[in-house]
Design a protein around this nucleic acid. Structure first.
Length: 449
RNA sequence: CGGGGCAUAGCGCAGCCUGGUAGCGCACCUGCUUUGGGAGCAGGGGGUCGCAAGUUCGAAUCUUGCUGCCCCGACCA
């Protein structure tokens, strides 16, 4: 993409409404624009990031055996009456009525809808277990939206729902999602820590929040240091294996958010030099809720003995749009965003320091073409602007690599390669720089697989 | 929903107290000079001063009402 043809409205100053760093940077780097409180438009650069995150989430859900579908944003009130939540949900739910005065709502979540779909379609235990998911916009009319996209009213969420015959089976589904989440966040360059959370109605240990420790997180968290050092499962993970032992390596160590924190247990179970108290951002939440919806909504299947069995369910959410903010909170510096390679809107920024000088233009065009041919996405700054402005802009938007081409270097057949994350700059031949960037990108892709 | 604050050009702000028909910096356009970390000079474009009533010869400025947005708290992915 040539920057001269792109839509990238950068802001030099911090908009005064943006308090936290991710919100400021998202506005300044031209990722989003606010439409109204807690509701954002995604501009081209931001949308590219959102889509990349979405793709990783999708790939890991699919890998774990979950099946994608797509439910509507607008739901009828009836099914919420069936589950009993229509009255319970309160003002967070955006209620609307259509021209026939039929009560509708903009879905804050989809348990009712998926239960209805499943109930109407599945009658036999032979079709269990199943995990269904979708990635869809939700709306919760928060009393006070804040932190930009991290706590918006409208947000993009991946929500999965598991359907099992027995509680033991449900635990297996839960474990699949548990590990899929570790892989998902890991692929985005995030250290996520599963933490004991407020348990569902069934209680027990089947409820976890996935927290990214950051300086500006919304809540206080306490955990064993081993958990940040532990590697997420690799691509060799077989979801058909017994996953319980692997899950236990994560759940066996102390980790809790403030509402579940037990200072006594923390001190007792974790050696002092391993105790971490930090702030964190919740990016995922998984829980088992048994028959909370299947019971009132009559979601039953026939078991092997011919009797009707109420289905055991769980649900598993990932805040997809929130992740954009969370990643920035976890990865930035004074100059701007530092995108992890897997979610960067472009793989590399190409800076032409002297637009109009034939040799420099030629070298840039050549690089641009060869990178694109190698399936490396490039944002080429071909604007007639000053070097300093280009450097600042490129640092702000945080692409992993910058290739800097100027008249001095090009006479010697050299260009400069800068790695955004480390600030390391190398003066290289064009060929060497190309190889370096291409191999870095293909390496990142291999890790992803 | 309780408490506090703000609303003037794309962004950041001044002007308001003491009414006289709108200004600064950045951004944007033109020209010249510059050109490896947000250049300089000159010239220019852009604002129904959030909305509505009222007071007044006259309202960005005073009064009343409304709306929007932000911050703190309770609540939440």
């Amino acid at each position: 993409m040539r920057l001269s043809h792109y839509f990238l409205p950068l802001l030099r100053d911090d908009p005064k409404e943006a308090e936290i760093v991710s919100h400021r940077l998202m506005l300044r780097a031209g990722l989003v624009r606010q439409s109204s409180a807690g509701i954002y438009s995604w501009l081209p650069l931001g949308l590219r990031v959102l889509s990349k995150i979405e793709r990783i989430v999708r790939e890991e859900q699919d890998r774990a055996g979950a099946l994608e579908l797509l439910m509507p944003t607008i739901q009828p009130a009836e099914i919420w009456r069936e589950s009993g939540r229509y009255e319970v949900y309160g003002k967070e739910m955006l209620r609307i009525s259509d021209r026939h005065e039929r009560e509708m709502l903009y879905g804050p979540t989809n348990e009712e809808l998926i239960t209805e779909i499943f109930r109407d379609a599945v009658k036999s235990y032979k079709e269990l277990p199943r995990i269904l998911y979708h990635i869809q916009w939700k709306f919760r009319d928060e009393i006070r939206p804040r932190f930009g996209v991290m706590r918006g009213r409208e947000f993009l969420m991946k929500d999965s729902y598991s359907f099992d015959l027995t509680v033991d089976d449900a635990r297996r589904s839960y474990n699949k999602m548990f590990l899929a989440y570790l892989r998902t966040f890991g692929r985005m360059g995030l250290k996520s820590i599963p933490m004991a959370a407020e348990s569902g109605p069934i209680g027990g240990d089947l409820c976890h929040e996935f927290i990214i420790p950051t300086e500006t997180g919304e809540s206080e968290v306490y955990f064993h240091k081993d958990l940040v050092e532990q590697e997420p499962p690799g691509p060799e993970l077989d979801y058909e294996d017994d996953l319980a032992p692997l899950v236990r390596t994560w759940t066996g160590k102390y980790a809790a958010t403030s509402e579940k924190h037990d200072a006594g247990r923390f001190a007792e179970e974790v050696p002092e030099d391993r105790r971490v108290t930090a702030r964190g951002i919740e990016v995922g939440h998984i829980f088992f809720f048994g028959t909370k919806y299947s019971e009132p909504m009559g979601c039953k299947v026939q078991g092997p003995d011919g009797g009707l069995v109420t289905v055991q369910m769980g649900s598993y959410g990932i805040g997809v749009s929130r992740l954009v903010g969370a990643i920035i909170e976890a990865s930035h510096d004074e100059a701007g965003i530092i995108w992890p390679k897997s979610v960067a809107p472009f793989d590399v920024g190409l800076i032409n320091l002297k637009v109009g000088e034939a040799e420099v233009d030629r070298a840039c065009e050549d690089l641009y073409r060869r990178l694109e041919n190698a399936s490396i996405s490039v944002l080429y700054d071909d604007r007639d602007d000053r070097a300093g402005a280009k450097f600042t802009a490129m640092d702000l938007i945080g692409l992993p690599w910058q290739i800097i081409v100027g008249p001095k270097g090009i006479k010697a057949g050299e260009i400069e390669l800068k790695e955004r994350a480390t600030g390391m700059r190398h003066t290289l031949s064009i060929e060497a720089a190309l190889n370096r960037v291409i191999s870095s990108a293909s390496e990142a892709r291999r890790e992803a697989a």
